[in-house]
């Protein structure tokens, strides 16, 4: 099992600074159990990014999807 923790929000904001469209792709296994990358976290991060970017006046389109397992190609 992979163990993951949340990246600092500011770091994520810097990573996507020049992007206008973003897909947040969650995974339904290990990172869900770690409370860092499952569907619930995807929804929360998408909302936070939209708000932070709108506040800056720099709108972004955020897609949200969570697949069952990202580590096996059969699931992708």
């Amino acid at each position: 099992m992979i163990v993951a923790e949340l990246k600092p929000f500011e770091e994520i904001m810097n990573m996507i600074r020049d992007r206008e469209k973003l897909l947040i792709l969650g995974c339904g296994s290990c990172v869900s159990v770690c409370m860092s990358g499952g569907e619930k976290q995807v929804e929360l991060l998408a909302s936070a990014l939209r708000m932070a970017r709108n506040r800056e006046g720099n709108q972004i389109t955020v897609g949200e999807k969570t697949i069952l397992r990202q580590c096996d190609p059969e699931f992708i």
Binding site: G28, S32, V33, C34, M35, G38, E39, K40, Q41, E43, T66
Partner: peptide, 10 residues
Amino acid sequence: ICAAECPASA
């Protein structure tokens, strides 16, 4: 409460 806490929204 469990639905709010479920990380997979399952």
